[in-house]
Amino acid sequence: MKQVFARPKSLKPAATHYCPGCGHSIIHRLVAEVIDELGIQERTIGVPPAGCAVLAYNYFDVDMGEAPHGRAVAVATGIKRVLPDRVVFTYQGDGDIAAIGTAESIHAANRGEKITAIFVNNAVYGMTGGQMAPTTVPGLVTTTTPGGRQVNRDGAPLDLTQMLAVAKGAVYLERVAVSDPKHIRQAKKAIKKAFQVQLDGLGFALVEVLSACPTNWKMDSITAWQWVKDSMTKDFPLGVIKDETGYDAGPETEAGDDR
């Protein structure tokens, strides 16, 4: 019988610690599928963040080096500069890449570091218990925004990916969501392209993935994922934010992986 579903080689047979309904597991799977499809498992080095995905090294079956909170792209820069023929990716939350690590992201992008950043935007600080993130949308209640985020009190959500677009060395930036099969397929396409950009030595590539944190949003999974589609995308519209790859169309991804 033809096998139609299997665990990607680049993902270990481990149960994750993520909450039910969390987007991190889906995004891990997409990254692992891309690594498999590109045949780069043996030369890929990942840099997990401080954040809910801190234990990503227990799930990805590639070399992994832990970074301090916010510094993943700087650590990845160091690795890539020593081993330019390896594939280096970071996996970072919104607090990690868009608050404490803002300076590192902008400058790594501006230098055109040949690394791939996966930026998981779930609008809160998951790991530390649901505080406000730079990407928390107005009205969302977090443990540090009583009554919901108020722009005049707490500031407006920050669109880091849009900011990165002005950095000359950033060649490919796209915002996707993993809210339903159609969007998951698009997310995978974007992730694959962001790795391809690195393989082709073009410069800095980042995919922002809108994700749900049902636990800290205090929503059930269904409501949370609907909320990603209905509310988050208002402040963070999906689509290509910058593409200077010169690729005609994104490299093909396999059909039928909408799970």
């Binding site: 080095i45 840099v47 080096g65 970074a67 301090p68 510094r71 700087a74 650590v75 990845a76 820069t77 160091g78 690795i79 890539k80 500069r81 020593v82 081993l83 390896r86 590192e104």
Partner: peptide, 9 residues
């Protein structure tokens, strides 16, 4: 942090 990465590699 670049030092950390380079040392890891």
């Amino acid at each position: 942090n670049m030092v950390i990465g380079a040392a890891m590699a």
